[in-house]
Simulated scan of single mutants.
Amino acid sequence: MPQLDTSTWSITILSMVLTLFIILQLKVSKYKYPEISEPKSLLSSKKLVPWEEKWTKIYLPLLSPQR
């Protein structure tokens, strides 16, 4: 049974890793990162949801007097 020649494996693996690293760097360098802006206040970023904007009739039965 013939022996498997593993003498070229190290250079193949090293070249593959180097190639993948270069490809990754090229992909990342094309990405445009957003500009860093001042942090927004947490209080001003709160958005009102529809049920907070107005009082609805859903809550009115709870306000009726007790029997």
Rank of each mutant, 00 (worst) to 15 (best):
P2L: 09
I22P: 00
K47L: 13
L62K: 02
S15D: 13
K30P: 01
S37G: 11
Y31C: 06
K54F: 01
E52Q: 06
L62R: 03
P39V: 00
P34N: 05
L60M: 05
L43Y: 11
T6G: 08
K46V: 11
P61H: 00
I11Y: 14
L62H: 03
T19D: 09
S29E: 04
S44N: 09
W9N: 14
S7K: 10
Q3W: 04
T19W: 14
W51F: 05
I11K: 15
P65D: 02
L24I: 08
D5P: 00
L43F: 13
S44I: 06
L4T: 13
Q3T: 11
S64R: 05
Q25I: 12
L20W: 08
L4E: 07
Q66I: 11
W55P: 01
S37N: 09
I58K: 05
K47H: 09
S45N: 14
P34Q: 01
S15R: 14
K54E: 01
E35W: 06
E52L: 00
L48W: 04
W55A: 02
V49K: 13
W55C: 01
Y31I: 14
T8N: 14
K40F: 11
L26G: 05
P34K: 03
P34F: 02
F21T: 15
T12W: 14
D5W: 03
P61A: 00
T6L: 14
T19N: 11
E35D: 13
V49A: 13
L24E: 06
L4Y: 09
S7W: 05
V17H: 04
E52Y: 00
E35K: 12
K32Y: 06
I36N: 03
E38D: 10
S45F: 12
W9V: 15
M1P: 03
E52D: 02
Q66W: 08
Q66P: 03
L60F: 06
T56V: 00
Q66K: 10
L4C: 07
I23S: 08
S29W: 07
I22L: 15
K27G: 04
Q3I: 09
M1Q: 03
P61G: 00
